[in-house]
Amino acid sequence: MRAFGADPSGRRDSAGVVKEAVRHAKEVRGPVRIVFPRGTYQLYPEQAELRELYVSNTVGPDEAYKDTRIGILLEDMADVTVDGDGSHLQFHGLMTSFAAIRSRNVEVRNFSFDYTTPKVVDTAVSDAGVADGRAYRILTLPVGSRFAVGDRRVTWLGETSPATGQPYWSGVDGMQYTQIHDPVAQRTWRANNPLFDNVAAMTDLAYRKLRIDYHTQTAPTDHGLVYQMRQTTRDTPSALLWESRDVTVRGLKARYLHGFGFVGQLSENITIDGNEFRTDPASGRTTAGFADFVQMSGVKGTVEITRNVFDGAHDDAINIHGTYLEVSGRPAPNTLTLEYRHHETAGFPYVDGATVVVAAGGAIATRPPLRRSAD
């Protein structure tokens, strides 16, 4: 990475440099090690690799999300190691951190990574009570959180893209899904979100604080709790091991997994060892995973998941499953039409050379297996 001009000071975007360095490494004969000399590296999506991906338990047949930006893409490679040398990779926007696609003998190791403005909003009730006959809450947000207040509503904003000047994402009030975290009792549960019911007024207090006044006179009882709020669309895997074999992920500190988790899909022999899946304590956040941490989908051989720390997911820590298809037609005596039934699963070939069934439920559309989008 140093040879190609990646910036370990963390001042410049290194995504384009990483893309070119990995493409060069692909042409190197024999085992190759891609090294990030110790430092901090910024990776924005605009210059990162772009691929059309269909991944289990994500967005199914919705083509609005078919193109994925990938920070580190190992594609059709063999005998390759990505060594972070203790570095930190800071991701921006909505992107997959790394992927191994149709590759073998791969190791990804020894770095931490995080996202600047996660798509899960963690807001703590830092004060609550009754004033002037109205109940109120004061919400405190972690560093990196952005929002705008108007007409008794709050709009949560993703980081602003340097290319478009627009936020990478946005959401309103409690969005679609909430978990509640008690940092004292160390408990987290799924529940309805009362923060935005019967709102009388909403005030931006600055310094990442938001005051909400209510029509009710009953004092809230949730002082100290953290509301973890998000939308439900899993727009991309956080990391993807696709049609690859003998892959090891070791010594990573995954501070936030955007979109989904580490997905192994139609791959063989995967080791996930000695990693931390949890937030950086200094971040003030409590959510480390938008959904699952580790998901193995249709993987064969041996899967070893050892010596990891899992803390702060919005779904399973580990999920291992197959993919089942329904016979929905027989267009010829020797031909069957198969349909994915899970609404978040579609588009990838179930067996080599098979027709890809893109639809999940309802009408069926077909297309040949997909490889890559144009750069």
Rank of each mutant, 00 (worst) to 15 (best):
Arg285Pro: 03
Asp204Ile: 03
Ala201Gly: 15
Ile272Asp: 04
Gln231Pro: 00
Arg230Asp: 08
Asp292His: 04
Gln265Thr: 08
Ala201Cys: 02
Gln231Thr: 14
Ile272Tyr: 13
Phe290Ser: 11
Gly264Trp: 03
Glu304Val: 11
Lys253His: 15
Asn198Gly: 12
Gly251Asn: 10
Asn308Cys: 03
Gly274Val: 02
Glu268Leu: 06
Lys300Ile: 10
Phe290His: 10
Gly224Ile: 00
Tyr207Glu: 12
Ile270Arg: 01
Lys209Ile: 04
Tyr214Phe: 09
Leu225Tyr: 08
Asp204Phe: 10
Arg255Asn: 12
Leu205Tyr: 09
Asp292Phe: 00
Asp235Thr: 15
Ile270Asp: 03
Pro237Met: 10
Leu252Lys: 00
Ala206Gly: 08
Val249Asn: 09
Leu205Pro: 04
Tyr227Asp: 00
Ala206His: 13
Glu276Ala: 13
Gln228Glu: 11
Phe277Met: 05
Thr218Ala: 11
Thr286Ala: 10
Gln295Asn: 07
Gly274Lys: 07
Thr221Val: 12
Val247Arg: 03
His258Pro: 03
Val303Cys: 05
Ser244Asp: 12
Gly298Leu: 03
Thr279Trp: 02
Arg255Ile: 01
Gly261Ala: 01
Phe277Ala: 05
Thr279Cys: 08
Ser244Tyr: 08
Thr248Val: 15
Lys209Thr: 09
Asp311His: 12
Gln295Tyr: 05
Val226Glu: 04
Phe260Tyr: 15
Asn308Ser: 02
Glu243Trp: 12
Ile305Asp: 06
Ser238Cys: 11
Gly261Arg: 01
Thr216Met: 09
Gly224Phe: 00
Val263Gly: 05
Thr236Ala: 12
Gly284His: 04
Val294Thr: 09
Val294Trp: 00
Met202Gly: 02
Asp235Phe: 15
Asn269Pro: 12
Gln295Leu: 07
Glu304Gly: 05
Leu240Arg: 12
Ile270Gly: 01
Val299Cys: 08
Gly301Thr: 03
Arg250Asp: 11
Asp280Ile: 02
His223Cys: 01
Phe293Lys: 00
Ala201Asn: 12
Pro281Trp: 07
Ile272Met: 15
Thr306Lys: 14
Pro281Lys: 08
Glu276Pro: 00
Leu252Ala: 01
Ile272Cys: 06
Gly261Lys: 02
Asn275Lys: 08
Asp204Leu: 08
Ala239Gly: 14
Phe293Gly: 00
Thr286Tyr: 14
Ala291Arg: 09
Thr271Ile: 13
Thr286His: 07
Asp235Arg: 13
Ala206Pro: 00
Thr306His: 09
Asp213Ile: 09
Gly224Glu: 04
Val247His: 04
Phe290Gly: 01
Lys253Trp: 15
Thr248Glu: 13
Ala282Val: 08
Ala201Thr: 06
Asp280Lys: 02
Tyr227Phe: 15
Val263Leu: 13
Gly289Lys: 01
Thr271Pro: 04
Gln228Ala: 05
Leu225Arg: 12
Pro237Leu: 12
Met296Glu: 08
Gly251Tyr: 09
Leu252Thr: 00
Leu205Lys: 11
Thr203His: 04
Ser238Leu: 11
Trp242Asn: 11
Lys253Gly: 13
Arg250Thr: 13
